[in-house]
Design a protein around this nucleic acid. Sequence first.
DNA 1: TATATTAGTATACTTTTGTATAGTAGAATG
DNA 2: CATTCTACTATACAAAAGTATACTAATATA
Lengths: 118, 118
Amino acid sequence: MSNQKSISEIKKCPRQFVLAINDTLNVVSGKWKLPIIASLLYGKKRFKDIQDNIEKITPRMLSKELKELELNGVVERTVYDSRPIRIEYTLTESGEKILSVLDAMVEWGMDHRKVTML
Amino acid sequence: MSNQKSISEIKKCPRQFVLAINDTLNVVSGKWKLPIIASLLYGKKRFKDIQDNIEKITPRMLSKELKELELNGVVERTVYDSRPIRIEYTLTESGEKILSVLDAMVEWGMDHRKVTML
DNA sequence: TATATTAGTATACTTTTGTATAGTAGAATG
DNA sequence: CATTCTACTATACAAAAGTATACTAATATA
């Protein structure tokens, strides 16, 4: 089984694996990061668009989270100097690839529900 | 690409996917859950063993987290009525499978580091 | 010139999460 | 019978995460 390999890999648990997992957790955990990423999966968006999209998020939180995601290389902020200026947010290439993690989470979560909600 | 399929799946984003992701996040986020799971990947352990294994965790946190993980069907607590009684913690089958999620996180995290730390 | 829109910031607050420190009950060990 | 070990619990506190509400600067629109 491929599971066996993974277990032994984790058992060695090299530092870089731990760091990688932490990086990933920083991008997906918290109340608003995934909703923001999900919103950007539909294409580039302006601040206001994301805010309307998520509805309950305050501008303070949206601003804070976007900054963090940008710092983490998941989101890109582009200023177009039209008049008036527009600012657009997109996922980076790496940001889009986080979907593989979400896929794994969906799979485990659904499987787990099947098992525990018998 | 299999990425393309995933994106369209998320775009539909059925409620059950959202629930599944939340379930998964509940199991992996927080400061101590992954260390505890990792410790149990090495085999069944007693309270004291896990505590020694993680070193900085307080008994309060360990107790609280173990209860939550048990409630979430990730960890199993078994009382052996030898004298004195021993209590052992193990991962459930489902709990072991969370490794697939960790694998995805390791992969994304390492790939992402390669891209951002140029 | 008054009002609206975009892209936020500022301040104060509440809630959640985690820490520090001490204590307990039951049994075993010297 | 005093001490130690296991598996915790209790209380108080600190720090991090999130909320509520109001405000601003630059431009556009009526």
